[in-house]
Write a protein that binds this DNA or RNA. Structure first.
Length: 436
DNA sequence: TCTGGGGTCCTAGGACCC
DNA sequence: TCTGGGGTCCTAGGACCC
């Protein structure tokens, strides 16, 4: 038996904790560059604002409906998430943090009234963190996801489901025919694992509701669709098929990608962006104590400006040996960038991804202890650790590696002049430079 | 006219998730 | 003018092997 705890409009709820004046108002949190909606309050939802809606299309609602738009504060959301998760941990013996705003709890072996237990946890989370949640309980993870959807829908849209399921919905406590009634009220596309594409195909085949999907033959579903959908069907039927993983698995790929606020044409601007992205992914890589064997770099124009010439290309650059060093990763990404860059295009987005990721421990023994390479790696590792610590303490981007070459040297020189004019001394050969 | 029968590894692309 | 930023898994097909 599983419970799924999911925060309501998480990013917006976090902002409301620190700005209570936002309560009752339509609020959205926008993505990078204030481009599009990544979270919205109920009031904003009622205005018809969809997830992913571009800001310029809904901006008029600021004046017309008092819409409040905010830039995201991901550090705050991560911190609030930690607090919520530590409370959810008290629900069962095992916990699986599924995303920043939701977690499964394994209720197996817990005695007592599960509905009551979940209501109490929900109240505690609300009281101690200010974040409202919905809780769903089911015999499989897919059913607990569905129960969570019912709990939220019942609260948000009165009449969509029976009132007893508001905020906490426990499918395990219901007789079979009542579960089926709830499934019959649920569109097939709402089921976890059924997306737009498969949802449309199912509807075309006459499978309109969650109950219709549950009643399909699992083996036939595998033949016609995939093992993925087969698992979903079996889970709806009450057979657990999805693994419960407590450990946060090490990432197999790590990415940093951004859309630019304005079109970018110059190679130098892309180089600056790619250098920054490289530092970010390398930091994430070191945090999970891994090395990467390959670096992917991509640039692309905006598909929304389809009247402009389009260009999109990526390249995978292998590293000589697996690394988590800023300079080596940035070097590979920049070599790739030079290779795929074409002038004459208005670039809208770029990114760096790390692939072929493995544990750092495996690679460290390849070099003889005390050899020059080993000494070098040790020094670099110490430098990287120092950079990570300073950036953690003083904010991202406080310490960066300057790129080699005339531009990097000019940057270092300018910073050095500035620092010296402030009475500091800096050494010319320092690798780390403090951004004023 | 017939054109082995596996097996592995890799990659690209699709579909899904939040 | 302005359109997010991450991830995972599965499958099909090709290359290659014996």
């Amino acid at each position: 038996m599983f419970a799924l705890v999911d925060a309501n409009a998480f990013y917006v709820s976090c902002e409301k904790v620190f700005r209570p004046g936002l309560n009752g108002r339509p609020v959205v949190v926008l993505g990078n560059n204030d481009g599009c909606v990544i979270a919205r309050s109920d009031e904003a939802r009622k205005l018809g604002i969809k997830m992913g809606a571009p800001w310029f299309e809904i901006r008029h609602l600021e004046d017309e409906a008092g819409l409040v738009a905010m830039s995201p504060n991901f550090a705050l959301y991560a911190d609030m998430s930690d607090r919520v998760m530590s409370l959810v941990a008290g629900l069962g013996h095992r916990q699986m943090v599924y995303s920043i705003d939701e977690a499964f709890a394994d209720l197996t072996g817990i005695r007592g009234d599960m509905t009551l237990r979940c209501r109490r946890i929900r109240e505690r989370i609300l009281k101690w963190t200010g974040i409202p949640c919905g809780v769903g309980i089911g015999s499989t993870m897919t059913l607990s996801k569905l129960a969570n959807f019912i709990a939220k829908s019942a609260e948000r849209k009165p009449g969509s489901y029976p009132e007893q399921h508001v905020q906490v919905c426990n499918l395990v406590a219901l007789p079979a025919h009542e579960i089926d009634q709830l499934l019959a009220r649920t569109e097939v596309g709402e089921i976890w694992g059924v997306g737009r594409r498969i949802g449309a195909q199912l509807q075309e085949a006459g499978v309109m509701t969650a109950l219709d999907l549950k009643r399909l033959d699992a083996a036939a579903v595998k033949r016609r669709w995939s093992v993925v959908l087969e698992r979903t069907v079996r889970e709806l039927q009450g057979t657990p098929c999805i693994g419960f993983e407590e450990e946060v698995a090490a990432k197999k790929q790590i990415a940093c990608t951004r859309s630019f606020g304005r079109p970018v044409t110059e190679l130098s601007d892309l180089q600056q962006a790619v250098t920054e992205f490289s530092a970010r992914v390398a930091e994430k890589l070191r945090r999970q104590n891994s090395h990467a064997g390959q670096v992917l770099c991509f640039i692309r124009t905006s598909p929304f400006r389809f009247q402009d010439p389009q260009y999109s290309r990526s390249i995978v650059v292998p590293l000589r040996r697996p690394s988590n060093d800023n300079a080596e990763i940035a070097g590979a990404a920049l070599r790739g960038l030079r290779f795929i860059y074409r002038s004459g295009y208005q670039y809208a987005k770029a990114g760096v991804m790390l692939m072929d990721i493995g544990s750092a421990d495996i690679f460290q023994f390849e070099l003889p202890l005390g050899s020059p390479e080993d000494e070098h790696n040790g020094a670099r590792g110490t430098l990287m650790a120092a950079i990570d610590e300073l950036n953690l303490r003083y904010g991202r981007g406080t310490v960066q590696l300057a790129s080699a070459g005339p531009q990097g040297r000019a940057k270092v020189w300018a910073m050095r002049q500035e620092r010296m004019s402030q009475g500091y001394t800096t050494r010319w050969d320092e690798l780390a430079v403090v951004r004023a």
